[in-house]
Structures are given as C-alpha cells and as structure tokens.
Design a protein around this nucleic acid. Sequence first.
DNA 1: TCAGCACGATAAGTTTTTCCTATCGAAGAA
DNA 2: TTCTTCGATAGGAAAAACTTATCGTGCTGA
Lengths: 299, 299
Amino acid sequence: MLTLRQMRYFGALASTRHFGKAAALANVSQPALSAQIMEMEEHLGCKLVERNRSGVLLTRNGMEALRRVQAILAEVERLEDAVRENGGILHGLVRIGIIPTVAPYLVPRLVPHLRRDHPDIEIELREAVTDRLVTDLLDGRLDTVIAALPIEADNVEVQPLFSDRFFMAMANNDRDVLMSPLTENQVDADRLLLLEEGHCLRDQALAVCGTAGKRSLVNFGATSMTTLLQMVSHDMGMTLIPEMAIPTETARNDLRIVPFAEPAPSREIGLIWRKSSGRAEDMAALAQAIAACVPANAG
Amino acid sequence: MLTLRQMRYFGALASTRHFGKAAALANVSQPALSAQIMEMEEHLGCKLVERNRSGVLLTRNGMEALRRVQAILAEVERLEDAVRENGGILHGLVRIGIIPTVAPYLVPRLVPHLRRDHPDIEIELREAVTDRLVTDLLDGRLDTVIAALPIEADNVEVQPLFSDRFFMAMANNDRDVLMSPLTENQVDADRLLLLEEGHCLRDQALAVCGTAGKRSLVNFGATSMTTLLQMVSHDMGMTLIPEMAIPTETARNDLRIVPFAEPAPSREIGLIWRKSSGRAEDMAALAQAIAACVPANAG
DNA sequence: TCAGCACGATAAGTTTTTCCTATCGAAGAA
DNA sequence: TTCTTCGATAGGAAAAACTTATCGTGCTGA
C-alpha cells in the first residue's frame, strides 16, 4: 500500500539527490528513508532512483512519479489548509429551513443582509411545515430551521430569536364591530379562517381563540398566509395575523388589524440546529443577523 | 501527520455513512476505522462527521474534506497506474547523445523511424564528442550514447551496433594517383586533413594511417565532417571518411572515394547506457531501430 | 415500560510498521 | 595503498495500527 510517508521521503530524496541529506530533511535516519524508498519501489514494481557514484539519479519512472507525488503532496497540504482555515463564520453552504408563515416576511430582508455581512455564504432555503423541516434537519438535509417554538426533538439546540405578537385581521368593511383591544373570547370561532393542517399557526390560532375543540365552519385550510388574508379582505371571515406579516399583507390587501388586549398572545420564533453539528458559532452569527432584520418586532 | 490510510477510511465512511459497513468495506474492524477517523479529525482540528441516530452525517468541513480526499485518492491511483503501466517500450523522454561523425548521417533516418514505431517517444538529442557525452551519461543528463567503441567507463552497458568501414576521400581532380584498393602505408601523412582534437575519428584516422606520432602539416582541425570534406574537395588534402557518410557527402562535394585493401579499417559504432538505469529493454529496442536504419552498413 | 438491538466508543493486549544505532561493503579520493 | 563517503543491512526498540471483547446510549417493539 502506497503511503504519504513514502511520498514525502521520496520528495525529499528527489530534491536533495542524496539519501543522507534527504533523511535529515525528513527528520529521520538514513536507513529509515532508504527502507521507505525501497518499499515504494517494491510497491510500484519499478526502480525510482539509480544509486550511482555521482549521487542519486531519478529514473524515468522516478521523474514521472515525482511530478505526481509533488502534486499529491500539494493537494494534501491544501486539504489541511482548507479545513483548518475553515473560511471563518458563516462560510460556504448553509441550508436553512423556514416555516411558511415566517419565510415571506423574513427572507427578503435576511438574505441580502447575510450576503452583505458574510460574502462567502451560500444560502439554500427550504420552506415547509415544522415537522418536515425538523425531519430534514435531523436527517442532515438542513443545517438549521427557523420555526415557532417549542420544538419537540431531541439532540437539537434551540435559540429563541424574537417574540411575534398576534393580531386579528378582518376586512375593512366587516360588519363586526369588535372592541379594540380585543379579548380572546370575543372571537367568533365560526368566522375564523385557518391555514391547512400542519401549519403551526393554525394550531396557535385555535389555541388563542379557545376553540381547540370546536369545528370551524370555514375550515377548509388555506395554503398560505397571503391566500388566507385575501379571503379575509374579501370579507369571508377573520384570521390571526402575526405582527411580522402585517406590513407586507396590509400593503397587498385592504385589512383592518385589531390588537389583542395585554398580555397579547404571541408566538416565539426560534433557531434550531443539531447539537452534534458543532456549528454553534455559525448559529450565533445567524441569530444575530436575523435579529438585525426584525428590529420592529424584537421583543 | 495525515495519512492515506485515514483518507481511505474516511472515503469508505463517507460512502457508507456507517462505521461498521465502512470498516467492512476497508477490510478492518470497526474500532480500527473509528480510531483513524478520530485521528484524522484530531489532526485537522475539526469534526468531519456527526454521529447521530440516523447514521453518520458529514459536517460541512467533512464535505469539503471529502471532495479533496477523493481527488487525492484518485491521484494516487493514477500514480500507481502510470508508473506500473509504464507506457511500454521506448515511451516518453529518451535523451540520446551522438558523436558528430555519426549524427548527421544517422539522425535523419533514425528519428522518423523511431517516431513511426514508437509514437509515444519524445526524443532529445545532443551532439558532442565522446568524452563529453560519456560524462553527461554518467551524470544522468543523457539516457544513452551512440559513439565509436571502445568506451572507457565503468558501470555502463555496451551494445555494438554496426561496423563502419573507412574509405579515403580526395578531390576528384587530385594529382595523386593512388592504387585502389589502397594500402594503409600509401597515405601521405602530410596531406591528411583531420577533425579538431577530441573527435574519435581524428584518432582513428591517425591510427589507420600509421602516423600516430607524426605531426601533420595541415593539422589545424576542422570542426565538422562536412567542413573537412569541403576542404578535401577543394584539393587541400585527403581524409578518412566513414562509409555511412559517403552518400551524404558525395552528394554535397565532388569527391573521389578510394577503398582500402582488405581487411579494410573500420570503426565500431555502439550504444552505451548506464548499467543502473534498468532500461535494457528500451536499449534493445533502440538498437534494433538503429540497425533498421543502416542496412547498407550492417556488418 | 422494559428487554432487545444497533451502533459507535472504549479497553486491553497483540501484531505490524517504522525507526534508530551500529556496521557492512563498494567506490572514489588522497 | 588507506581514508572517506554513501547507501544497504542487521538487530532490537518504539510507535502505530489492529483485533476481540465490552460498554453506553438511544431506538424499537412487545
């Protein structure tokens, strides 16, 4: 079996053309180097050097081998450097999973921010419901997940990012005249519009409105926040809207946003990654970047 | 110190994503492989794999390392192949030294012949006097020498190639009326033109004409056979011409070629190489190629 | 919920590899 | 000739790598 040790010794021999000096260069005794060279020749099945009066000559095979050996040793050195230097924080590919009720409001601000502060980053995004994201995270298809807490998974590290208050959204011309601020039991569960199964915001909405057990009449399940709020703006009902979605969605739809009475219900958004990934530093940097993107909601 | 063994195990681990299977693939026990991976991580200063429930995951550093490791292992394999396959006979660079009284008559026929029969050959030629060629050979700057025998050097192998008879060349209008065939003592040493010091043909001419001790009047020493024969054709004297030079030189100059009486004097041209070069096969092929180039002179 | 299983880490002892010192033998130099 | 240089060889020590056996943890299914 060819070894790097043999190649290193052979490189030293080629550059000194002298067994003794090569051994000194390689910090071993001359017989040790001789033996390795002989073993290398044995393995390759041909002489690499000629031992002569006027020192050492490389054979033709030796020259060919030398070129390749030097290339290999250089490659090895680059491997050591590349992994050691490591590119610093948030370098290279980072695969981020984000739940659909956060992604559209965070991504447009987060990505440019990351690109600016970490020019070497390469971002891969996936948008899916929490369960799917956590599975992908645990299976190594994602490096980190941004989702609503709490997360039920072992072996993960969780860093809370910010708290995102809920508001009630309804059509501006809605006939309901709700108190503002709203108390949670004022909500008519039959008029509550929800996202489809699997979205954590659906469960949160049901929890907030105290209707976990009830069956909502209009519960067909929208596929996105935007769809949901379009329905709301067409006076088909009302829905819970997280604060971070308000600027974007009110710009798109004609909505009335009604706050809840304090203590306002909210969701906690957090960053999740595998404990064993050893990327706590990257994650801290990412958390910081996210915090810098949502100043209005920080809390 | 990074080793190829570590890389091979790491490659196996990356492809199986399972320590046990990787160990089987590498034909070692699982603890042995674990230890090598750990050592590699230690050396590189970072984790390469995450050990998890769902098997083994490569870290980001691990992926970077894997790419480089695979490249390195492929390079090593190519090194083994390249040296082992070896390209067959007369492949790659062959550095040939030829004495000046042979080169102009052999090279134009030999080089195309070699290129045709050994397409992978790369020929480097040097023309110099025997002493210089032998020094270069022994110092490894040449692979082989074509010169007149005998050669005084140790550690070399000698393969006689062909015998090259001498003729006397003189101007066609020379007043001397020599017997043909010529006997050696008929030559007027004072009219003998010679190459400069160092050429073996000079010494051979002096020996043939039995004038080793005499001082030739026109002994200023020409630098080449062609120069010498131009002088001859201008009736400045006569000179010994080897048979292989006759076709070329009589085409260039108006010469009278007179044979010697049998046994005609001759020189023996041979192929010389370092015993330790281990290229006997190459040299045999080269000798054969040369023989095929000089059929008229074969003897 | 608990035994069973899968998997990587650890332990202990053995084998293999690598190395060192000392010395040999050949070849060139004085 | 004798001396010196240089790579190879010998013998034994040190280091590396390997093996089997076992541990600990986390998942799985009765």
